[in-house]
């Protein structure tokens, strides 16, 4: 009677058994890695814009406050993009012939808003509100990074749900005093653990309901 199993059978059986476990694990790990990589989150990739606007120049060199242009950030869900007249407040006198600023002048002349491309785009089922974060100790740079060092604006945080929850579950390490909210260079001090607890009390943050679904989804 012929052998049922060939000499290779043991090897094949071992490979199949190992593959049954390892292939799904590797595949899931790979998909997770792709999903959290800049390929999916666009972190660190500058977005092309109609005008190569530099926060490094306007915030870093000139020292403009965030609110000079993003006027709605303290009072509304949207931080607000400046109308062309805000650009022209200075550029009606400065760099008036610069080719780089031609789209700004054209926008003002034709009354057509400049079409900026979104850098931070949350899914439409997330109801994010800037003002509530600003009013409760979350500074601009906690999510947007130090824009005073960005010649072209890019994302620095993945804006995934896991990332949002990492702060909503434990906000204390991310909170800062009211006077530091708009400071793009702010970093937590060495004694920040204690300060974070005090800030939680100062802002009256109720951690128990920060991770409720309805906080962000409706």
């Amino acid at each position: 009677m012929a052998q049922i199993f060939s000499p290779r059978a043991t090897t094949i059986a071992v490979i199949v058994l190992v593959a049954l476990v390892s292939v799904p694990v590797v595949l899931i790990a790979y998909i997770y890695q792709v999903h959290s990589s800049p390929y999916a989150t666009h972190v660190g990739i500058p977005v092309a814009q109609p005008i190569p606007f530099s926060h490094a120049h306007h915030v870093g060199d000139v020292g403009l406050d965030c609110r000079y242009c993003h006027t709605g950030v303290e009072t509304s869900a949207f931080a607000g993009l400046p109308p062309t007249s805000t650009c022209m407040t200075c550029h009606s006198q400065l760099w008036t012939n610069a080719a780089m600023l031609a789209p700004v002048r054209e926008s003002l002349a034709k009354g057509k808003p400049i079409r900026w491309n979104r850098v931070h785009d949350l899914p439409d089922y997330v109801y994010f509100d800037h003002s509530v974060h600003i009013a409760n100790g979350v500074g601009c740079s906690s999510c947007h990074g130090d824009v005073s060092k960005m010649p072209l604006t890019r994302k620095v945080k993945p804006l995934t749900m896991g990332w949002c929850l990492s702060c909503h579950e434990n906000p204390a390490p991310h909170l800062r005093p009211q006077a530091e909210i708009f400071n793009p260079h702010w970093k937590p001090g060495p004694d920040h653990e204690k300060e974070g607890r005090m800030l939680m009390a100062h802002y009256g943050i109720d951690k128990d309901h920060l991770t409720d679904c309805s906080v962000c989804h409706r």
Binding site: A77, F78, L81, K112, R115, P123, D124, Y125
Partner: peptide, 17 residues
């Protein structure tokens, strides 16, 4: 669901001049 067919704040629309 991520990009719902709606006009967002500061969004663009080609139906207006």
């Amino acid at each position: 669901m991520t990009d719902q067919p709606r006009l967002d704040t500061y969004g663009s629309s080609d139906i207006w001049p």
